[in-house]
Design a protein around this nucleic acid. Structure first.
Lengths: 343, 343
DNA sequence: AATAGTATTGCAAATGTTTTCATAAAATGG
DNA sequence: CCATTTTATGAAAACATTTGCAATACTATT
């Protein structure tokens, strides 16, 4: 077994132990076909004996790629990003990359700082969430000629390559669904929109469709809630105490929708009989809850996998132009929405 | 603004532009107090003008720390790890570290491989989840004298530093809670235990306490379900079709417990009136669901923050011996459990 | 004004690899 | 068995930094 005691065997130590030159050891790693099988065996043995581990830092100094991809998320602590991050990183790992992950908590200043830090680490590429980034960040990435990909949103005019869905459309679909069920008294619960283009686009899509059908949403039925079951539940509970309550709620995402359903259950308002609730996202668990949540499905896994494939192409240089991939949405009608019945 | 066109300014380009030597530029970054303020200003200007970004790879070749910490998780795609990962990485980022994150999907072979890869990247330290790791992995980390920390479990005999809770105790507390409410007919739903010491310990703790009180759990009431609402719901639904059903369910974690509650709701079994359900974990949302979930709270944020602080000390060398931190559990009695009523 | 410090800077070596080029050894072909 | 090609290896330069040491310039002290 491995006998090294210092943990600091370098390539020349291995070379010495195998009685060859460092060049040969290096070659045996990077171009094994160029070295004699017998020599390779000797080297392998030496490597094992010394517990040698290659130094990527030294490698990447030679213009070699670092084998890392930076992933910048607002936060991981959301069902939705967790699923995305998981599929994205799984896919990239299978390509031999390692993920350098950082979060910025929806702060675009910090986002700039973390991208800079990723550049110090000489990542081969960077993935960001959404398309809302500071001018400084965009400039930085352009100057450094860094392969970049924006995940989650699709925009035909995006400044960088992107793969994602149309959030505006998601908002529309949710609205169309409620309208199609005969609802006219509709409440809107969305998170704050600063630094969050996803939320903004969804809301605008919803409002656009509603207005087109002549439905206006009174101020009291438009509420702001972060992506948190707890807070959404509180916000919705308050909404339900009004004199006039809507017959349907259109929520910025599934977490908010869940909060609303719990609030309704607690207040004794039957879902969907007296209140329909529709979400956006289709997170893990949305389908299983009682009542199962109607929602606009954004296929996080698909997006993650496609995004990974795309950044790999961008990094390898196989994909010189920026490319924008639109991932289709799907309305999942389930048990939390029903046709509006006059009573 | 930045005018560089190649994106490849190095320290000597900066030196030239500032009319000083490369050494001085380097020093102005690493030991600013040693360089004349006026010179520093010149250098700063040159850095900005050229869009220079330091190369950590080259730095870390000099025995300098890489400024990265490896984080190895089974999967991120779980409420519970998401919360942990978030607090851990936030805390480490505030100390100037960047996280290299990898997942292995509960496969200890892959875990070994990813730890190796992290070593290639010369991480300053590594954090793993739990204490169940292959001998090979432990050996590797010891030989390389890598600062290591195991998160999530506490064990007085742990081979490496750890911060976490006692999962055995968590199982006990959940069992004591049900027993205390008068339940004797108790079902157990836990995930598969291979490569998952958390689950194993919890189950053993639960069984230990039940047996001590003379309660035995028939085979039909012991079910295996992964950490997934969907699957837990299905497993529980099946359990509820038996002739004999338990009056209480003790679940391996909150996700499983949620699945069980949904299954009960669907089957028209009132929770907690006819069936009590207790979970382990206290994930985000558990408190808000209807009925609010009774559970044994494992303080993920606290653990993440403490773990980050500990690995920093380990890396800086301020903490030579291995240290084991026990984070206390707390029973959260909420609405999903109730006293057993004869009927 | 000579001496001793002190502050500031540059030179050169070192870090762990990869790669180009040159060389030696072996294989092939007549 | 010699000439030519192929295969295998090593020497040295290159990569982007940091740092120990030496040199210089300046300041304070007598």
């Amino acid at each position: 077994m491995v006998l090294k005691q210092g943990g600091k065997a370098d390539i020349v130590a291995v070379a010495r132990a195998a009685k060859v030159s460092a060049s040969t050891v290096s070659r045996s790693f990077n171009h094994p076909e160029l070295v004699n099988p017998a020599t390779r065996k000797k080297i392998d043995r030496a490597v094992r004996r010394l517990g040698y581990i290659r130094n990527r830092a030294a490698q990447s100094m030679h213009g070699r790629r670092s084998g890392t991809v930076g992933l910048v998320v607002p936060t991981i602590d959301h069902a939705i990003f967790a699923e995305l991050v998981q599929s994205f990183s799984e896919e990239l790992e299978s390509e031999g990359f390692t993920i350098l992950m950082t979060s910025h908590g929806y702060d675009l200043e910090r986002e700039y700082a973390v991208v800079r830090k990723l550049l110090e680490h000489r990542v081969d590429g960077v993935a960001l969430i959404g398309l809302d980034h500071s001018e400084e960040t965009y400039l930085l990435m352009e100057q450094q000629e860094l392969p970049v990909i924006a995940i989650w949103n699709y925009d035909a005019d995006a400044r960088v390559s992107c793969v994602g869905a149309q959030n505006f459309r998601a908002g529309q679909m949710a609205a169309e669904h409620l309208l199609g069920l005969g609802h006219r008294k509709i409440g809107l619960i969305f998170p704050d929109m600063v630094g969050n283009d996803r939320s903004r686009d969804r809301m605008e899509g919803a409002k656009f469709t509603l207005q087109n059908e002549g439905v206006t949403v009174p101020q009291e039925w438009q509420r702001v809630s972060p992506y948190s079951v707890a807070q959404a539940k509180a916000v919705c509970a308050d909404l339900l105490t009004q004199d006039q309550v809507p017959t349907a709620l259109l929520c910025g995402n599934d977490v908010i929708a869940q909060g609303c359903i719990f609030a309704a259950q607690k207040a004794g308002v039957a879902v969907p009989d007296r209140l329909s609730v529709v979400g956006i996202g289709d997170f893990k668990g949305s389908k299983e809850m009682e009542p199962a949540l109607s929602t606009v499905r954004i296929p996080a896994r698909t997006i993650g996998v496609q995004a990974a494939a795309l950044i790999v192409r961008l990094i390898s240089g196989d994909q010189p132009e920026t490319i924008r991939q639109d991932v289709p949405l799907q309305l999942m009608q389930r048990a939390s929405t029903a046709r509006f019945m006059k009573r």
